[in-house]
Design a protein around this nucleic acid. Structure first.
Lengths: 134, 134
DNA sequence: TTGTATGCAAACATTTTGCAGCGTG
DNA sequence: CACGCTGCAAAATGTTTGCATACAA
């Protein structure tokens, strides 16, 4: 049994966490890397990847698959919420979802799965992109 | 203006389509490749990727991001439906989801997005995996 | 016959891993 | 001062592209 936690707070980790908390636009790992670089120019990509994985593991960030062709995105908002994604510009905004617990329970009974959660993303076009083509 | 459709039915394409239609387990591109190979041993991976993209484009298959770390999966069942994914074995089963049109409309009004659809995947553990650990 | 489709291999993009040295606790 | 963390570069994935040839229509 390991008693030591061993998790250290380094400037790099703080910078990644800060960058993520300051973002509301669900950046990809590459985007987080770019943002962190403006503060920690010497940081390596591997460190960003490792730190993001750590944060997800620790429950301090969410890893999102928004279903567009993109890579995984990261979100410092760990409260239960869903997303509406613009199919044109890729912008994703947070939304609260009206999925009844009753429906989930019924699904669990029908499938035999022990359901622990769900991911829901809506897609369409954002106001800006809609206006641009109208 | 192009009048010619230009889409040819080759043995390879038929094999990919057949393999997909015979699958109910949402295979990844690599899995489709393996299955098709048993029928068309000489087929190349690129052909499978190209054909799958074609099918998706033509609306004959769906490309799914099930949110687990996996690659995209493909589904010949193009009717609207959602999935329950086992976090342990990765198995994904189809389910019908009761997401009210009213809720979608209200979301559209709140966000200003023109919502055209949504992807919903539940996650948990399948009966088998639950039994295995109980 | 004509132009599309194929297979191969190289090119790519993204993420992970190995390792020597650095720095936090 | 020990052990975890870092940056670099190489490796491992997964997918796409270029091209000469094969073949459906």
């Amino acid at each position: 049994m390991t008693t030591t936690t061993g998790a250290r707070m380094t400037p790099q980790r703080r910078a990644v966490l800060d960058a993520l908390c300051a973002s509301t636009d669900h950046p990809t790992a590459a985007e987080v890397f770019d943002r962190v670089r403006t503060v920690q120019p010497g940081i390596g990509a591997a460190t960003v990847y490792r730190t993001l994985a750590m944060l997800v593991e620790a429950g301090q960030a969410l890893e999102l698959s928004l279903g567009d062709g993109q890579s995984a995105r990261y979100d410092a908002n760990v409260a239960r919420h869903d997303h509406v994604v613009c199919r044109d510009c890729g912008r994703a905004v947070d939304v609260e979802t009206p999925l009844s617990p009753r429906a989930v329970r019924s699904l669990s009974e029908h499938t035999g799965f022990a359901i622990t959660g769900y991911d829901l993303q809506f897609h369409g076009r954002c106001p800006d992109c809609t206006a641009r083509t109208t």
